[in-house]
Each structure stands twice: as C-alpha cells, then as structure tokens.
Amino acid sequence: MENQAFEREKISLPNQGKKLLLHSCCAPCAGEVMEALIASDIEFTIYFYNPNIHPRKEYDLRKEENIRFAEKHNIPFIDADYDVDHWFDLAKGMENEPERGIRCTMCFDMRFEKTAEYAAAHGFDVISSSLGISRWKTMSQINDCGERAAARYPDMEYWTFNWRKKGGSGRMLEISKREKFYMQEYCGCAYSLRDTNKWRMAHGRDKIELGKNYYGDEQQ
C-alpha cells in the first residue's frame, strides 16, 4: 500500500464473515480503520450516513474528505441521504442533553439502523463503524447501538473490534497528518457545535470557523 509505514497485525471478520459494510463518520476516524482492513485483505464498502452533522457546509466538508480517501484506495463509497429533518425530529426534547448521553444513543441508533438496513438489502453479513476509534466516544455505547441494529436481521453481526488498541489511535493521528485531512472541532450536531462554542467563548477563544483547520498545518 502507498505510504504504508506501520507494522500491522492481520485481523479477520468475526464468525467467518464474508463482507463488511463500514459506517464512516469522517475521514480522520475512518483512515486508520480503512488502512487496517486493506492490509488484512478484508472486502469492505464505506457507508456514509450522518444526518446529524450540522450545518450543511460542515457535512459536505467531512463527506468530501472521506470520498477523497476512499477513491485513493479504490474503496466503494455509498453516499446515503442527508435526512437532517428526521434527525432533528428524533432529537426533540434532547436538545440540552450532554455529550455521550441519550441524544448520542439516539443518534447512533438512527445511523446504525440505516446501515444495517442497507447491509441486509445488499448482501453484507457484517457491519461496523469508525466511530469507536475516537477517544471522545464511549465504546460500550457505540457497540450496544451497533449490536441492537444488527440484531434486527438474521445472520448479521456488528463487529465490536477495538480500533484504538495496539497503536490505532496514534496511527489515526499520523494518517490524518499525512493526508492533511480536514480537522473538525466538534462532534457534529448543532447542539455539540453550540456547546463547544459556548465552552470556547467562556475560555477566551473564538468560535469555531468551519473549513479552517487541517491536520498537518504548521500551526498544528
């Protein structure tokens, strides 16, 4: 693989799975996961379904970075609907919930249910997500949502592989710098943007400027 600089242990799909549909939240999180799968000769397709991301400019930035990396490695990329109105409907009453709370559970459920639905209709027997590699996420929460979504379909499994282990988190950062990925500065939804900006302003920092920072820039 081009620019491959890491020693990797071969991994395999659980229970002799044949075909993986990988839900991707963004290129920085997905980069290490994708390279690990490629190095292990695992057949997979990227499924980009993230109607939580707000505003549309941020959504497009994250999606296009992911498409760029997938195309570089000739990985199929499924661009799912941006049904943001439905996401906001589901989030009603949860606007002031904290990160990692019930609003995030709803968000993971929504995205994984759609992932599992697509997988079942297109011959995938394993689903997983790059969300779990982020240290800002609670892995048990993500895995519970993924397993719940997969359980709706016979012979489908959610792969709970810990992408952070054995240097995965460090490689995630190195790949992001190497590829100069766009650096998102909040989780993604309107409420995380609101709360992050509130925190920044309380600590004397400017509000987030969309599309400004990229991994590998000199200031990083």
Rank of each mutant, 00 (worst) to 15 (best):
C25D: 05
M201N: 14
H203K: 10
R111F: 14
N3G: 08
A150F: 12
E43D: 08
K18H: 12
A5G: 10
E65N: 07
M110D: 12
L20F: 04
S140R: 14
S12K: 14
W159P: 15
L173S: 12
A190M: 00
S12N: 10
K165Y: 10
C145S: 14
D41R: 06
K63A: 15
E2A: 00
A150Q: 05
I78H: 04
C25G: 04
K114I: 14
Y186T: 02
K63N: 12
F44I: 12
M172C: 01
K63Q: 14
G170Y: 07
F108H: 12
H86D: 15
Y59K: 12
A30Q: 02
E43R: 00
E113F: 15
I38V: 14
A116F: 10
L13R: 04
G123P: 15
G101T: 06
E218C: 09
I67Y: 08
E113H: 14
R56E: 15
G216P: 11
Q184I: 05
K198R: 03
D217G: 06
N74K: 15
T160R: 11
T196W: 01
W159F: 03
R171P: 03
F69S: 13
D155N: 12
I11G: 03
R148C: 01
G211V: 08
R111N: 11
C25P: 02
I133R: 13
